[in-house]
């Protein structure tokens, strides 16, 4: 006969698990992934598969070599791979995707101790690394197969260029424009956002404050509602705000800290897009704020009830 278990409370659990959360994020990314394949063709699928397989394999091998407990079952490497792929365009050769994936998992995540210990978002850091290492293929975006007459550059490159053929707001919303695989179809991203909210995986504040800040800044700077709306739909803003700025590990643990984090992301994105030579600022803004996250966490500490 087994003895009764002796343990400290509580003796019941909500049933939440890290694996389930990761699964929810993957499910929330699926609409954007499907839209990517529809818009950019089968090459998008190959890129996604390459990134996911390379991420999972490098985590598996790293754990094996470092004699760490195997962690690929938590599905977080799948999320990293999928996110990285959705941030790349179909112009990027598969071998570069593989290099980026290994970079994300081994250097950004596992080297710092694995899940929960990295200070920067692996997918974003890998994308920034690839942007520098493989500038010619990673910068700019591919053109959806469904679009014929639009110029080969992404809308963000074209804004400000006189007479350039910009896609309409409606086309932007559906993703009929140049860009990375997963960033163009806003509709699909919003479906994923709604799912994450429904499953209570993320709070609405971070994406809404991030996107809202960019919108308001542009509204003030340009005085044009349509330009502000266009900026919000362009580039990787919605993808970044919904899926990357809400990453648990690399953002503050307090609710108020997360709001400040989102505000900072929005401001930096605006400054980079408007005043710097770079066409896109979402990745850099999130990366900058990742570094500030521990400070935001400290500054937003609550006074405990009955404490000081």
């Amino acid at each position: 006969m087994d003895r009764p278990i002796m343990s400290a409370g509580p003796h019941i659990h909500s049933g939440a698990s890290g694996r389930r959360i990761m699964l929810d994020v993957i499910l929330a990314l699926l609409p954007a992934a499907v839209a990517g394949v529809v818009l950019f063709g089968l090459q998008a699928l190959w890129i996604m598969l390459t990134c996911v397989i390379c991420c999972v394999a490098s985590e598996f091998l790293f754990n094996l070599c470092a004699r760490r407990k195997q962690s690929v079952g938590d599905l977080s490497a799948v999320v990293t791979g999928l996110l990285l792929a959705l941030n790349l365009s179909t112009k990027v050769p598969l071998w570069q995707c593989a290099v980026g994936s290994v970079f994300a998992i081994v250097l950004v995540k596992c080297a710092f101790g694995g899940m929960g210990h990295n200070f920067a978002n692996p997918a974003i850091t890998a994308r920034v690394f690839m942007l520098m290492a493989f500038t010619s293929t990673v910068a700019g975006g591919a053109i959806p197969a469904a679009v014929d007459a639009v110029s080969s550059a992404t809308p963000l490159d074209l804004i400000g260029v006189e007479g350039a053929g910009l896609p309409t707001i409606g086309q932007m919303f559906l993703g009929l424009r140049g860009g990375a695989i997963g960033e163009t179809c806003i509709l699909a991203l919003l479906v994923g956002f709604a799912y994450l909210l429904l499953r209570r995986v993320i709070h609405w504040q971070t994406p809404v404050i991030f996107i809202g800040t960019v919108f308001v800044c542009y509204l003030i700077a340009t005085g044009s509602f349509s330009t502000a709306l266009y900026e919000v739909l362009a580039g990787g803003l919605v993808l970044g705000a919904v899926f990357m700025a809400t990453d648990y590990t690399t953002t503050p643990i307090t609710a108020e800290g997360r709001m400040l984090f989102a505000l900072g992301c929005g401001l930096i994105t605006f400054v980079i897009r408007r005043f710097c030579v770079l066409p896109e600022g979402v990745s850099y803004s999130i990366l900058c704020m990742n570094i500030l996250a521990p400070w935001l966490e400290r500054w937003t500490r609550r006074k405990p009830l009955g404490g000081v």
Binding site: S7, G18, I21, S71, G114, Y248, I253, T254, A255, K303
Partner: peptide, 24 residues
């Protein structure tokens, strides 16, 4: 009665949000 094996903290903030005394 069976407990689940713990895994590393993922920094999700649920404990901070739920703590009735606002502790971390």
């Amino acid at each position: 009665a069976k407990a689940t094996e713990p895994s590393p903290c993922i920094h999700c903030g649920r404990c901070v949000a739920i703590c009735p005394l606002s502790l971390n």
